[in-house]
Write a protein that binds this DNA or RNA. Sequence first.
DNA 1: ATATATTGGTTCATTATATGAACCTTTGGA
DNA 2: TCCAAAGGTTCATATAATGAACCAATATAT
Lengths: 258, 258
Amino acid sequence: MSTIEKALGLLELFSGMRPEIGLTEFKRLTGVDKGTLHRHLTSLKNSGFLEQNPTTKAYRLGPAVLRMAAVRETTVPIVKNAKAHVDRVAKRVEELVHAALPQKNGLSAIYAMDGGARGTRVSFDEAEILPYHATSSGIAMLAFGDTALSKSAFSNQLEAFTAATSTATSEVEKLVEEAKSAGYAFSSELYEAEVCSVALPFFGQNGSAMGTLAIATPVTRMNEERRSQFIAELANASKNLSQDIGGQIPKQLKTLWP
Amino acid sequence: MSTIEKALGLLELFSGMRPEIGLTEFKRLTGVDKGTLHRHLTSLKNSGFLEQNPTTKAYRLGPAVLRMAAVRETTVPIVKNAKAHVDRVAKRVEELVHAALPQKNGLSAIYAMDGGARGTRVSFDEAEILPYHATSSGIAMLAFGDTALSKSAFSNQLEAFTAATSTATSEVEKLVEEAKSAGYAFSSELYEAEVCSVALPFFGQNGSAMGTLAIATPVTRMNEERRSQFIAELANASKNLSQDIGGQIPKQLKTLWP
DNA sequence: ATATATTGGTTCATTATATGAACCTTTGGA
DNA sequence: TCCAAAGGTTCATATAATGAACCAATATAT
């Protein structure tokens, strides 16, 4: 593996729950030698991708990532477009709705809106990675995304997050097949207890899915009627979002979706 | 220079005006060998920092940068905080207002809002780099930011954007000194013809400036009265923004600002 | 239809850079 | 005051980066 990929892999370790990482913690997380780590971190810092907390010396993501995101957004204004549709669905279904894009080890939400005014709320960290095998978004992405994705998704041991998480590749593949024939993915308590979700893909200029739209809700609030409503809302949003970004819904999905 | 920094330097080449870059264009821009470039680009692609336009094969920034920005924003919610204050000032002064953070070769706007309802508008590309030596934001950043910044800012030949741009280090240093004693930076037509701007710093947890707030306006609309108003508005916004992000305005600035 | 130019991508011997064990420095408690 | 833990540095060795030459695919001109 190239030095570049090793160094960029360090950036992947940051998350909403782990926003700052010290040298020794990097060593614990990666097993790489301190000397090597220090040089990598210094390079990333020199390039503005990291900065150091002046008091603790711990590293955190630097301002360069903000500029990169802004440039990317001028090229492919996916966040801006997704935002409008997610907000609209969130308001109508009064639940947590999010749009996500595939990353290396799972999907990452690019925008989330909780339209819920009611008691229980699904907690959601926008900066968290949603694993492919244990979330409805992940299953939807595997079902309708690039085939290369499945290979990388199944290359590591699948982690169990709840008792219901499928950790066998064959089981997950079955879920993916179900999603393919249904036109959407449904999952219940695979990732977090008490939470179930519905997800379906949206499409960009190349034929396969660019990302997903999903609704998450406490299992207690879910029933057949709401599920149908969710699917209808998401299908509508996906059609519009895909059109906004110059994509097209594949024929077989057009017939499956309401 | 490390391989990591060379590779990340490639990402810097993207901008609002140059959102996609092909292999040969990278070669033109950097002078680096194609073989080397190709491996670097492949590594960046494998890490999700680049993706390829499926038809043209040209590279563009990938979805990983969106996740990085989201994580950074959960750590240091600078965009979110700046947004509120910029919007307020933009509405009050009815001009283009922006907040910017230092990068390697200049500042990069993290948010901009044009409150102008009137005829002429200052055009602004959020993903563009604002050079340190030729913008009010840049001068303000050099005046109140970390001293290490000046070294890197003056390490390369200074580019002339208009007839008025100072390309001699001594001239720019004079502008910086003026900004230090005035508490703000003013520049007219140094970067773009017909445009002048006022900028001042805001502060984070460490003592030196974290970024800048600025107002840009056509020179024809500028006068002494408006300048005073701009400074007052920006000073107020900077105080509030700095407080929001846990920073403090240095004593000498507190006395200079209205 | 055929030649030519341009672009993206690959190979492999050479060379420069990355690596990590051991060592030093600073900081913050017992 | 000592100790432990964290950040950081050094330098011989091993490994990965480099770039000239080459190949393949596509677009353009003859």
